[in-house]
């Protein structure tokens, strides 16, 4: 497990935070957090910035959450009996079906960056958690070198910007679980900040 050390020292502090947030949101959507994770989230310090407020909301929601409850909520939200409340794949969000062109486009990009799915994993690569962690890797340099801002923008625009904001907005409105709603709110704020920030250097 690589922790904060995976974020290279040579990247600017705001970029390091971006990588941290992408990685964190990705992990929250990959599997339910442990009680240890929840303890850390409860202890988050926050400020009055938009991201800080969203983290404060998540921290507050973690107060009454347990790993057991969140494990069940994760199933209901993302897995369910046959299908959860959400189908968090880019292709599904954009076309109504899995395995459509958005996935093919992502695979082409992944191949360009040398990102591969591990053997034995059959889930489509355009799961929101995978995309968040790909952005984390591009920013922090986990793919061999830090991706330029232009490369980051291109990846974001092509594979995330068109649908992730909608997904997080929908998740933020769920009645199923307050913690995951707060994850949705955090993701929504972060995606909006990213979109605006990328637009500033176009």
């Amino acid at each position: 497990m690589s922790q904060v050390t995976s974020v290279q020292a040579e990247i600017a502090s705001e970029d390091a935070d971006r990588a941290i947030l992408y990685g964190f949101i990705g992990r929250m959507l990959q599997a339910a957090p442990s009680n240890e994770d929840l303890q850390a989230i409860r202890g988050l310090q926050s400020d009055d910035t938009p991201v800080g407020q969203a983290l404060a909301g998540l921290s507050a929601a973690a107060e009454s959450a347990t790993a057991e409850n969140l494990s069940r909520a994760y199933e209901d939200l993302f897995i369910g009996l046959g299908r959860g409340e959400f189908v968090p794949y880019g292709s599904y969000y954009l076309t109504g079906f899995l395995h459509e062109k958005p996935l093919a486009d992502l695979r082409a990009t992944m191949s360009r960056y040398g990102i591969e799915r591990s053997e034995g994993v059959s889930e489509p690569e355009d799961h929101i958690a995978a995309l968040m962690q790909m952005m984390e890797g591009l920013i922090s340099g986990d793919f061999g070198q830090v991706a330029t801002l232009d490369e980051q923008r291109q990846f974001f625009v092509e594979h995330i910007g068109s649908w992730a904001g909608h997904f997080f907005k929908d998740l933020s409105a769920t009645d199923t679980d307050a913690f995951y709603a707060a994850v949705g709110a955090l993701g929504r704020v972060f995606m909006a900040v990213e979109a605006d920030a990328f637009a500033m250097t176009e």
Partner: peptide, 25 residues
């Protein structure tokens, strides 16, 4: 802009990263 949004000064950055299951190796 990013700093004003709250990125660059995440006080709890290290703690939210620790303990999570890594999907990216």
């Amino acid at each position: 802009f990013l700093k004003l949004a709250g990125l660059g000064t995440l006080a709890g950055g290290a703690s939210i990263v620790a303990g999570g299951a890594e999907a990216v190796e």
